[in-house]
């Protein structure tokens, strides 16, 4: 059972990772992250079921399509609000999210879809059954995180991204194409959301509101880990996933969905900088 919590937690962690990547680089908080996840799952569904493509091909197509979409979104809309008050940006992404949901409901309707996956069996290890579906989520998260870690530490572009998120002006002076980097970060973040969406699809099924619920929990995860910390986002996600699972199993009905938020509020009251974050103070 812990595996289920772990798997759902991984999804929250991945979505939170998307928030954090964008926040670190551009200081925008993307409230439409969950809706990107939903769009990604729908594209994968279209590719696999409607066009009859192989699961992995559909997977790849969805990731690429949404990643390109994310980059375009940055280049056309979001770049214009960098430097404006955070509140405006939050509302902008909320507005975008609402548009995505409407787009999805007009295009695909409000039915619930099932994405067929190659992971259906179970393993039984020492009397414990491990379903392949949940294992695939955990494994997918691990692979993705490993790849991202390698990318950020070992490639030129990855290092340039890190530099940009530390100090944009300095990065710009060093010849890093900051605008392109921003678009790339949006692409990666949207791609990560898509992966999360496809991995999640067999668990929650695909509908237009699937992103909303996940995004809210992922926010809790990101804050729990300290907004701006990448390992924090993953750890936060797993903690939220486990809390949710155990609260649902042991506490009265109604706590499954609220326990993560109660923990979040307590966390904010006691340690607002999160588990791994640092709290800065404005210099005067």
């Amino acid at each position: 059972m812990t595996l289920n919590g772990l798997a759902v937690g991984c999804i929250y962690g991945l979505v939170a990772l998307g928030f954090v990547l964008i926040y670190k680089a551009t200081e925008l908080v993307n409230f439409a992250q969950g809706d990107l996840l939903m769009l990604g799952a729908f594209v994968a569904y279209m590719a696999v079921v409607w066009w009859g493509l192989d699961y992995w091909v559909g997977f790849a197509i969805a990731v690429v399509v949404i990643a390109v979409f994310g980059a375009l979104l940055d280049a056309t809309v979001l770049r214009r609000v960098i430097g404006q008050p955070q509140f405006a940006v939050v509302m902008l992404t909320i507005g975008l999210g609402a548009m995505f949901r409407t787009f999805a409901s007009v295009t695909w309707g409000s039915e619930i879809y099932t994405l067929p996956t190659p992971f259906s069996g179970v393993w039984t290890v020492g009397g414990v059954t491990l379903s392949h579906q949940y294992l695939s989520i955990v494994a997918g998260t691990l692979v993705l995180c490993g790849a991202l870690y390698g990318f950020f530490t070992h490639t030129r572009i990855g290092v340039a991204m890190q530099a940009t998120s530390q100090n944009q002006l300095a990065a710009y002076y060093m010849g890093i194409p900051v605008k392109l980097i921003f678009s790339l970060i949006w692409a990666i973040s949207a791609g990560v959301a898509t992966v999360a969406g496809i991995l999640l699809a067999p668990v929650t099924l695909i509908d237009i509101n699937m992103g909303l619920a996940v995004a809210l929990k992922a926010f809790a995860a990101a804050v729990l880990g300290g907004f701006g910390s990448i390992p924090g986002a993953l750890v936060g996600g797993i903690i939220i996933g486990l809390i949710e699972l155990y609260a649902g199993a042991t506490l009265p009905e109604g706590f499954k969905d609220t326990a993560p938020y109660i923990v979040l509020l307590l966390m904010l009251a006691v340690r607002p900088q999160g588990l791994f974050g640092t709290l800065g103070r404005k210099k005067v």
């Binding site: 809309v77 509302m91 909320i94 999210g97 609402a98 949901r101 409407t102 409000s110």
Partner: peptide, 16 residues
């Protein structure tokens, strides 16, 4: 759900 999308579009346009 179209109404929500129209609200979203207006929100985006106003902010921009």
């Amino acid at each position: 759900g179209v109404e929500a999308g129209i609200f979203g579009l207006i929100l985006v346009l106003v902010i921009l």
